[in-house]
Design a protein around this nucleic acid. Structure first.
Lengths: 334, 334
DNA sequence: TGTCTTCATGACAGCGCTTGCAGGCTAGAA
DNA sequence: TTCTAGCCTGCAAGCGCTGTCATGAAGACA
């Protein structure tokens, strides 16, 4: 910055003021400074300014991993929005239990970012408390955190509509598949299951525990076994509702492997509207992942800007049922 | 830090030394300082230390977007490796032409990270030059940059083997589908095509321009048209080799739409080994995306640590042909 | 006992920027 | 012409750390 000042023939204060767009700089000076900065391709050392201002110009995102379609899509929604806001994107991916403990113990984000966006993370009360005394604005994405700014979809209501669709097609035996969750990372699962059950109750169908199945692991096997258990029930389901599209894809592969026609024999419904879902013809509940990311950034900006604003903002984004080829009326009974 | 020093009854220098694990601190003092730091849950302000040391403890990653499986997987490979190295991950996603110009114009990474990892980015000579005078270690990932540390797979050789497989199955008319590339973002495409053509030459098959097809856009349509053009040739291809698995999935969807059995009528081969490929039974060339990310981090660390080391390191990771259900001998001629 | 090491610690000068304050300059008013 | 009021601009004091140098205490050795 001293170089720029020298070249423009002004003081560093003036350069600083110019580059931050303060109004108290004359047009001619501003032009000179900007030219000098451009010629030297000056880029500000954020460390130095944050030391003074206490603002880092950086936003941290905490995610359980980086591999799922949903998280990638959310992140892609965030990136341009952050760029537009002049904020940089710091990613903390906390995948296993050890990393997780470490993250909450050391809180590396502290003083290293202006806000923390917590995406799809089921926090324990202790962790929640730990984040609270981080002294940093928090925004919860894809999850509802009471009393905290959050952006999410109404998983319960969406699942309710999904199951209703299956019921309307005539299905009465509907299984629900969720990912087994050793780590406590999943958040949506509970609400989606709740919505599913509510739809069943609404329709006067009694709940059957055998039809709720947990499939282990993020990828890997276990799907075939789950399918096997469902199909060997005395009255097997005619429709399968999965917690995510990823799970639905694995399910479809397992069903094809087992020569079970979809939707001829069973219907399958997912949740997410993964890019591949359209290609696979999967009926699903679309949630606007990229929009979730963009909205989260908008919310973050408003939290950062308003000094006295209401910090308890909740934004619920709409979901949509997308009927495709994997759902149909159940086969006629013989 | 002053608070910690006060509480422990020592000077800030001693606190700093303790927290950085320098050896010149006595056991008793170290214990006192650590206790004080823990009680106050002190977290260091990285801005301040980087201002002094010139090191940010942060690594920037430049990517053309965040949505493809390949980039997500590479990023997931990097994240834990960076964490282990005590480095933070800053993501610059530069998607459209405007953003791109802006990035290379302003070079926001300058002085804001210790190194820049450039992933899957076909740089113009001007851009390359611009990065060079960034005064920052560069590591090229999934691309070969002569004279610069890079980690990549041999796309040409992999494609060569892919096409050989099709030839070995008996195919003689093999089309190659690549993504149309207005932005110049793709890098691998050229080399993969080159490998494909080399295999044809090797087999004494003459090259036919009609069999090389560009499909517009990242997603979207255009695939049906491409399929139409191929199938309306006087002698249509019996096998289709796509530049990426993403493209292959779209192709498979278009073929199913057109009632063309795979591999009965045409064989399809992809490139990547996307998570979904196994589920779809797609024959493909597996490239180790996560391993690419991990290796890139290893390379980055060695570049950052060695002050005098050889900066021209090249690491080529192996690819593997994964034969699955979408390839078979061509239909017998009638 | 005196001198030389060695070791642990503190004092202090910045790192590159921001910001309150003071001062110089210009222009309009008296 | 002199005075006042704005405008711009520069000065200088930090922001929270690190790293160099100096200091003093304790041990080693003759």
């Amino acid at each position: 910055m001293a170089d720029v000042a020298h070249r423009a023939g002004v003081s560093v204060s003036t350069v600083s003021r110019t580059l931050r767009g303060l109004s108290t700089v004359s047009e001619t000076t501003r032009a000179r400074v900007e030219a000098a900065a451009r010629e030297l391709s000056f880029a500000i050392t954020r460390s130095a300014s944050s030391l003074v201002t206490g603002r880092t110009g950086r936003v941290a995102v905490l995610m359980p991993h980086l591999e799922s379609w949903f998280l990638s899509a959310t992140l892609s929604g965030m990136a341009p929005a952050l760029r537009d806001a002049g904020l940089e994107l710091l990613v903390y991916s906390v995948t296993d239990v050890q990393e997780r403990a470490d993250f909450f113990d050391r809180l590396p984000a502290r003083r290293n970012a202006d806000a923390l966006l917590v995406v799809s993370f089921a926090l324990s009360p202790a962790e929640r408390a730990r984040l609270d005394d981080l002294g940093m604005p928090l925004v919860f994405v894809s999850q509802h955190a009471p009393g905290r700014p959050s952006v999410y979809v109404d998983d319960e209501e969406a699942a309710l509509r999904g199951t209703r669709h299956l019921l309307n097609l005539g299905h009465r035996r509907i299984a629900f598949l969720q990912t087994a969750d050793e780590t406590g990372f999943a958040w949506s699962s509970k609400n989606r299951l709740a919505g599913h059950l509510r739809a069943l109750t609404e329709a006067g169908i009694e709940h059957d525990d055998d039809l709720i199945m947990s499939v282990p692991g993020w990828k890997g096997s276990g799907m075939a076994a789950a399918v096997g258990r469902l199909l060997s029930l005395q009255t097997p389901p005619t429709a399968l509702f999965t917690e995510t599209d990823d799970l639905a894809f694995r399910l479809l592969a397992a069903l094809r492997e087992a020569n079970i026609p979809v939707p001829g024999r069973v219907s399958v419904m997912g949740f997410d509207d993964h890019v591949m879902s359209a290609l696979m013809g999967l009926t699903t509940l679309a949630q606007p992942a990229a929009e979730l990311g963009r909205t989260a950034v908008r919310l973050t900006r408003s939290v950062l800007d308003d000094t006295d604003g209401d910090p308890q903002r909740h934004i619920i984004l709409p979901t949509e049922l997308v009927p495709r080829r994997t759902t149909a009326p159940p086969p006629v009974e013989r």
